[in-house]
Design a protein around this nucleic acid. Structure first.
Lengths: 244, 244
DNA sequence: TTTCATTGTGTATGATTTACACAATAGTAT
DNA sequence: ATACTATTGTGTAAATCATACACAATGAAA
């Protein structure tokens, strides 16, 4: 909602800047304390919703989604992927502001993002009072069809796990094997064998084990790893194939 | 373009019926004479393009795509799947009709369909003079970004082959194992081992071998098969897993 | 110093995938 | 009629991959 000073101004004049009937919504995933999180916004005096935005007249869908993401998280150059367009005519039942351009029917294009939790500083937008992380298993009732959109994003993420080693996008630079495994287990919603998991990850040949261990935990200190960017990019181009 | 009597009327008054800035485009795949085909339209005095349509004010995206498909092929209840939305601001460079609603920028939602070639009777629309099948390997230069849209559809189809036994949608009711294999080979763009292919297909347990053979070929007559709808549907629900 | 939860590591078994060859047959050519 | 040719139908062995599983080492906390 760049360029608007107030909510009223946005309601009245948004259609000079944005295409009518079209929006993007972002399902922003992060990983923290062994659980998968999603970033949500709370409307002023209203329900929670996915962070979204509109499409400027000379802007691509991807640019619009990136802009939304930057405004909510401060992040640029992050993993962002379109996954589905939602266009039921009644998807926004109960919409207010009937008269305004924004009260009209909207088709929304869903994107999901994978971000490093610790690098995000959630920022509400003009219309919202709060912006914060929720555990994906404890998402409240969202506005319109936003629960459905979120679930579809999660499903897409699950299905694409085997082609995209998501650790690279969701974990901090240095991480442990148990952390990486928890990430997979959280996304898949099932537990995995520790030894077999490690074997497969090592076999991908995109990880470097550092000569450091993560201390501070109450037990045996695990090794730290990082991704080998060169090998990672090469593997991505060829298309990975995992089997969980 | 239901309801319009002429091209002029459609150009002038389309925006009373359709949402602005939004369209759907359909990549309709068929299989004939051992090659994968795609159905294209030719604009009057213009280039070839994908069959597309617009979204009525109270219509969902899926309904709009289904309507387009029905109008071009006569078919209903066919396999139709949304795969991507295309929204570059310059994707329609060189567009005519600048003044009209239709001359404005459009975001298009891509669908691909799998249809039985022999059941289709291609019908041009108001704006086009021809509607016919092209081999996917011999598609002409299409308007705007339609080549890109088609390629993305093909890529999506390839990636989803292992979850959707496409034979059911693309082949006639009775077909031979070599036909089914050719279909897979054509979509994947690689050859497969004959015995291993058959083994996997049989193992899916969705095929019934008939006590008939296909005669007329110059060589040994192959058995005919058909899908066992019950088992097929059941297998679909559980999610297939092939490995080509 | 003991305890406890967690980490690091290898092998054997079963399942899956791949590679591969020869006899039967339906038309075609002679 | 006969031989020819391209294509079909079929099974097994080897290699690869996925799975199941246990014990010693360690770091912090008690």
């Amino acid at each position: 909602m760049t360029g608007f000073k107030s909510q009223d101004e946005f309601y009245e004049a948004g259609d000079r800047v944005y295409l009518p009937h079209l929006s993007v919504d972002c399902v922003i995933f992060g990983f923290h304390e062994n659980s998968l999180k999603v970033l949500l916004l709370k409307w002023k005096n209203g329900p929670w919703c996915l962070p979204g935005g509109f499409i400027k007249h000379k802007e691509s869908l991807d640019q619009s989604a990136n802009r939304t993401l930057k405004e909510r998280t401060g992040l640029t150059e992050i993993f962002l992927k379109q996954f589905h367009a939602f266009g039921e005519p009644d998807r926004e039942n109960g919409k207010r502001a009937k008269g305004s351009w924004i009260g009209k029917r909207f088709i929304t294009v869903g994107y999901y993002a994978l971000v490093e939790y610790s690098k995000v500083f959630p920022e509400p937008d003009l219309l919202s009072s709060e912006c914060k992380w929720f555990d994906v298993n404890a998402v409240p009732d969202l506005i319109y069809d936003h629960n459905q959109i979120m679930n579809k994003a999660l499903e897409t993420l699950r299905l694409s796990l085997n082609d995209h080693p998501v650790g690279y996008n969701l974990l901090p630079e240095k991480f442990t094997m148990p952390q990486l495994q928890k990430l997979y287990e959280t996304i898949l919603g099932e537990t995995l064998d520790r030894r077999n998991f490690q074997k497969q990850m090592i076999a991908l040949d995109v990880l470097i084990r550092l000569n450091e261990r993560k201390t501070g935990g109450a037990h045996k200190a695990p090794y730290l790893y990082r991704f080998d960017k060169r090998k990672y990019d090469k593997a991505m181009k060829q298309g990975l194939r995992l089997s969980f």
